[in-house]
Design a binder for these strands. Structure first.
Lengths: 191, 191
DNA sequence: AGAAGTGATGTCAGAAGCTGTCATAACTTC
DNA sequence: GAAGTTATGACAGCTTCTGACATCACTTCT
């Protein structure tokens, strides 16, 4: 429970989203964001290491959740089932934030560098999840492959979910994703 | 066959790789690179839109190759087979450059922003390949999923290939990757 | 209540990335 | 050899990001 803190941070995030949405990412300077939040640019960089991160800072809370899913899972399960649990848990966590996530994704898609940042973050998750699977005794390459395609699938499902209006939850989409791969693969070897 | 051109560009790339390797990415300034190549920083930015791109500029030649694979494929094949051909072709193309690619990957891994750039480029490929599959008459979601996991797999295999010393070619690794997914998946539903 | 401490913020200075503009020199072409 | 093209240099300026130090608000201890 700090004195003024967290308040500035929240205002900076809000200001950034509004301005990026209104004027575009490159067109809005850090000074603009800081001014709208009532602080200095220097303060902005105290909360966020760079201009991009104001869009992704909240994501950092998600990795511990995912790692926790793996660490606290009980009983003998396959790596695939664990990965499934991780992704469904992730889906359920972000599910309520759909509208703001969609706005954010529009901004991200408008700038290639932001897409890169998003994917880099996901790549870090991917590595950590794979490592967590390994530390639970699963084989290294299988863990890497699983984590790799798991996140690739999650992302494609998330993008669909953000766009779609059919009301199908992200968790449901994710649950259907892995079997869907199997279908595609069965077709793929069908010379 | 330009007058002086291409020569400066080549020298800039070489200088950048040497300096990034020697002093680290952030520590070497664009001025350093330009100086070593015998030109001005302004000239650097005429060849490359930003400092990152000097590491990735050559990759742009690869996309046309991949799209060509899809466009010129004859006979009725499944999307999966096509995707397989694309990735194996890509693997064979970059195969000879292994040593320089490994040095490059070390630099990329040292900086999160570079990883982002690498993945952003791959994301663009992914979208274009998916679009090419669609234009060959394949279903949209299947194309997207296939392209998505295809590149995820390719990347994980490439990273293994760069590290490994077992002499197994990248193309072979890629060929084994898709079946490997199937194995992992079979295990994954095996509650 | 007053002193001392802590943490958030402001101010200032500066490096590095990147862009626009114009000049110039090298080289080609007619 | 005149005209046109092109790579490059030379500034000048903006934006992102960092380090150093000052200051102000609020807390805690006495």
């Amino acid at each position: 429970m700090p004195r003024w803190p967290e308040d500035s941070r929240r205002r900076l995030v809000d200001a950034a989203l509004v301005l990026f949405d209104k004027d575009g990412y490159t067109a809005t300077t850090v000074d603009d964001i800081a001014a709208r939040a009532g602080v200095t640019a220097r303060t902005f960089f105290r909360y966020f290491p760079d201009k991009d991160e104001v869009l992704f800072a909240d994501d950092d809370e998600l990795l511990p959740l995912m790692l926790d899913t793996i660490a606290t899972s009980t009983g003998p399960v396959s790596a695939g089932v664990l990965m499934d649990q991780v992704l469904v848990g992730l889906a359920q966590t972000i599910e309520p934030a759909r509208v703001s996530l969609r706005r954010r994704q529009q901004i991200i898609d408008s700038e290639l560098s932001l897409t890169g940042r998003e994917l880099a973050k996901q790549a870090r998750w991917q590595k950590e999840i794979a490592a967590a699977l390994v530390s639970r005794g699963f084989e290294a390459t299988a863990s890497a492959v699983l984590s790799s395609i798991g996140f690739a699938l999650f992302r494609s499902q998330m993008l669909e979910w953000l766009e779609a209006e059919d009301g199908v939850s992200l968790a449901d989409r994710v649950k259907r994703a892995l079997p869907k791969v199997r279908t595609v693969l069965d077709e793929s070897t069908n010379r």
